[in-house]
Amino acid sequence: MDDVSSIIFESAQRLLSDLSERVSAGRPMADCERADGWRQIEEMGLPFALMSEAQGGLGLSDAEAFELVRICGRNVVPWPLVDTMLANRFATQGGAAPAEGPIDTLGELTAEQKERAALARAMQMAGALDVILVMTISHVQERSQFGRPLAKFQAVQHSLAVLAGEVAAGQAAAEHAVARLARGGAAATLAIGIARARIGEACSKAAAIAHQLHGAIGYAREHRLHLYTTSLWRWRDEYGTQTWWTRQVGREVLAAGPDAFWPAVTGA
């Protein structure tokens, strides 16, 4: 990762976390605040970040582009920023101009475009999973019951250990697919399927534990936890549901048969 991309990551993180802070859970943003926020995002060039340098993008490698997408996942904002980034990339690749303003739906996608969008969702999930882990650790350290912090109860410690394991596994699967993207073709498709199957499951388990450990407080609309958990529940089934991706992987493994199984594991 070079200096330029780390500057991009740092400024994106700063801006998006600032905008994310302004989202008070349970209360919509005022119109003027909305317009101002999106203007700042555009000023930083984020909607065009995934376009090629020749077309006015930031010239990020695939690894860097998906790292930026992970940062977007870490900071829930009230605009479809990642979708806009993808739409502008796809539009300019097809010779069209990038769009004005945030884009909600990507419309008809080629198979390759759908895969890239699916992987983007996986990396958003990777980012948001980190946030709910950190939020949950903080909560159990701050909240006391029966005269001691929740963190001191062994049942709570073990639940958090499971949460941390799921987060680590989901992230590893998503990172694996980003690393495999360069291979292209069926190998990249399989790796994306693996990522979506694994991180989708991680989201289910992690969100359930995060809510359980936050107690009723985390179920309230005014708490920020749901900004992340409801995002995870949505993202895990977009650009191909978790079930669809998982079946794609399974069909391929079953068609290849038992003798091809282990070589497929080491080759994936």
Partner: peptide, 25 residues
């Protein structure tokens, strides 16, 4: 092998995804 069962595909796909991920970790 070659099963068209959706349950089988989903289960095997899930196990394969777990295994590849564990191996990476």
């Amino acid at each position: 092998r070659g099963s068209e069962s959706l349950a089988a595909q989903a289960a095997v796909g899930r196990l394969f995804a777990h295994l590849v991920t564990l191996r990476r970790m």
